[in-house]
Design a protein around this nucleic acid. Structure first.
Lengths: 153, 153
DNA sequence: TGCGAGTAATTAGCATGCTATGTAATTTCC
DNA sequence: GGAAATTACATAGCATGCTAATTACTCGCA
């Protein structure tokens, strides 16, 4: 037992990055025929639930930087999934909404998300899942805190 | 308590991808002045410990596809970190080794990796870390198993 | 009123991941 | 021995992430 701490840390870091990529590529593969990806589906679902949201709010929710979102939305706009429209009272901002065609796909995207989520975590009990999620958040916060001096929010 | 399972799954998925990205960008930021990134550092360390390893073995170890590795190595070769040389007995393969200058950096890269690992997991106890790692592996295996028909190894 | 600070979105450029495909060399097996 | 399958590496093209820097606009305050 009593494995070396630093070996445990390495194992964790490795598992973290491989599991994350695996999740993404699986999602991407399954959503592909719809012209969607994991990132696009997430954006789609948030816009559906928060119509009129603007880009910076969406970026904050998705925890991505705004240039990343700009490109994501450019693609989704070209695909005819979303609309960017003017916000009255602030000419810098744009509010986001789904096109009708995207709304038609919504239900299926939601179902698929649930199915993949359940599938990927099949055999993981509730308690372990909670622990894992807590550890992941802890990691995020440790790093976030360390970056404080550099990027004061 | 008794939160909805599917909400827990979503929380996990979100934390997984944000923690993974955060880890990567932190690493990248700290290694940047050396011309390295997390991906490059991983490759570097594995080559250091397994001199003469070839590209497919390294790709398998890093759990990335070979085109991803090809580009990574192209960059590292241009930077003067690694060498690709002929393997006697198999003209398809190339064996990898570090340049002297890369060997000089090794120690610092190893130390930095340990420091970041320890830092990121500060405040996470051994048991929770083990559970989290186990869950991440479980996720990976669930997906891997599902993809069996498509990609028989 | 008007200037400076801050905010929303964008563009440019780099790094890493993937799939699909191609080329050359090796191995398998009739 | 030679065709077919497999393996090793590479190329092309797409998707997503980041940082740095720009543009346009809004807000606060002297």
């Amino acid at each position: 037992m009593t494995t070396n701490r630093s070996a445990s840390e390495l194992a964790f870091a490795t598992s973290l990055s491989t599991a994350s990529r695996k999740m993404q590529t699986t999602f991407d593969g399954l959503l592909r025929q719809k012209g969607l990806t994991l990132a696009r589906a997430r954006a789609l679902l948030h816009i559906a639930r928060n119509p009129g949201v603007n880009q910076s709010e969406l970026a904050k929710f998705l925890v991505i930087e705004s240039p990343t979102l700009v490109r994501l939305l450019d693609a989704m706009e070209n695909q005819g999934f979303i609309l960017r429209s003017a916000v009255e009272g602030d000419r810098r901002a744009k509010q986001l909404s789904l096109t009708e065609s995207a709304q038609g796909e919504l239900r299926q995207v939601e179902e698929l998300s649930q199915i993949i989520g359940a599938f990927m975590l099949r055999g993981v009990d509730e308690e372990d899942l909670a622990v894992a999620t807590r550890v992941l958040r802890h990691v995020f916060e440790n790093i976030e805190a360390a970056m404080d001096g550099h990027d004061a929010s």
